[in-house]
Design a protein around this nucleic acid. Structure first.
Lengths: 258, 258
DNA sequence: TGAATAGTGTCTTTCAGACAGTATTAG
DNA sequence: CTAATACTGTCTGAAAGACACTATTCA
């Protein structure tokens, strides 16, 4: 920035999406299969390059959300996750990727992908495991997304973004259990979540079950920042919490007991 | 990403730094005066363009830290804050800025700026007020940095990054008070901070004061994530906490009492 | 009726917040 | 001694976690 004749190096900007939802009681992420080099055949996060020089980053994220996942941006939570710009992360040249985190309520089974050859919901512990070959630095991006979601469940109302507009308290609890990878006491959860003012508000009457007492329905309340926060059990030591996802929820609890 | 002959638009990438420190019991941010258009004469965050196509983003942040603030990266906390990429934020063309948050212990009075014409520590409430003309979207970036620092004090050991390698508990308390803009009870703070395992560890004997009992010295402990977290008084409603900084610390407390 | 799921009450422990009191220095 | 700062103890109320119990549905 000192010499006047010098010009900064131009860089290509990609936007990638970490789209989470809850399916079968597990936290799942949307992955596509790359059809072209580099990393042809590997799994990757949906995303793409900025379409033109004047496109806003968030707008590009919304466009990719529609193109690659058939999701309308208005219906879901979307926030910036971070920038990934290590030189060499893309063999084609200098590409930095702006990652966005999207949270979607459970969607109809097939993902109506238009661009990508194929797209699937993959449980995060599968996506992060060795058995999945991920393009670029997408494993790191997913891991960061998991960590972001976990910590935001504590002190924000993000959990409601995983739910349909109306939901039961048990459904909300399932969000916490799946994302944190723990089991929570339904009775304490019930009391706790209702005591946080403005987190959820009663809506409609009840929802019938196949069997058992119908559950009351709620909507997301106005409060974004939760006070007091939802507390998650302490991490065993100081390592990244990502490791805990690999263990089944039932076992996680035992890790604390010695 | 569909047509093969299409190529994505190249973009210029800047790296900007939000450098916080504690001076005179207040949270202060380092600002430079721009010497060239656009926004010549306005205050701005230290920063600059990527120097060459293969420079890593974090490396660029460290380079700017050294060039513009004379700070060695090894000595301070540095983390990515976010990307700012609204079209039109830079009148020269499409520039996206990767913002980094740096936390420094109190430094010797004059800032040994080399590149920038001038650099000053400015209290954040001054920097965010109308009286300061800031270039680009740097007001927003600073506000986001303040919010990040505030929330990370709660559940991480970030506060120690504001302190010298050895510090007293009162000094640590001053960090919390300045960043949160509240007053805390020294006796409860003392007990609380010591009860969080691994947050701070005793070091050396004591530090003498001009007057009064010498204080014990501590170092940052190994624990990064605090459990249980340090709790900050609840925000009055749901608006951004930034507004609270404009009120003197003494008055903030009263806002809750009705 | 029983099985299943939803929701309540109550006890114990832990922790935040208020604040009285003790300890160690300089003068 | 007093003034000043550092540190300790103790009480109270709120909230977390464990878990017995009641409520409402379907078959």
């Amino acid at each position: 920035m000192d010499v006047d004749s010098w010009t900064p190096p131009p860089v290509l900007v990609a936007v990638d999406l970490v789209i989470f939802t809850l399916r079968a009681g597990r936290l799942q992420v949307l992955l596509v299969q790359r059809g072209v080099e580099p990393f042809a055949g590997a799994r990757a996060l949906p995303g793409g390059f900025l379409s033109h020089a004047q496109e806003d980053l968030a707008a590009a994220a919304e466009r990719e959300l529609a193109e690659e996942a058939g999701l309308a941006a208005g219906e879901l939570h979307l926030e910036q996750l971070g920038v990934y710009g290590t030189p060499g992360r893309d063999p084609r040249g200098r590409v930095i990727s702006v990652a966005y985190l999207a949270i979607a309520p459970r969607l109809p089974e097939p993902v109506p992908g238009t661009d990508a050859a194929d797209a699937w919901w993959v449980p995060v512990e599968v996506a992060l495991s060795e058995q999945t070959t991920l393009a670029f630095d997408h494993r790191q991006i997913i891991a960061d997304g998991v960590e972001r979601a976990r910590s935001k469940l504590e002190y924000s109302a993000l959990a409601t973004a995983f739910c349909a507009p109306m939901f039961t308290i048990v459904e909300l609890q399932e969000v916490y259990e799946a994302v944190w990878g723990v089991r929570l006491d339904p009775r304490n959860f019930y009391r706790k979540v209702q005591s946080v003012d403005g987190f959820i508000v009663p809506a409609g009457p009840v929802r019938k079950n196949d069997n058992g007492r119908p559950a009351r329905l709620f909507r997301a309340g106005p409060r974004q920042a939760l006070y007091p926060p939802m507390t998650r059990p302490p991490a065993p030591a100081d390592q990244p919490l990502t490791t805990r996802l690999h263990a089944p929820a039932d076992k996680v609890r035992n890790e604390h007991e010695h």
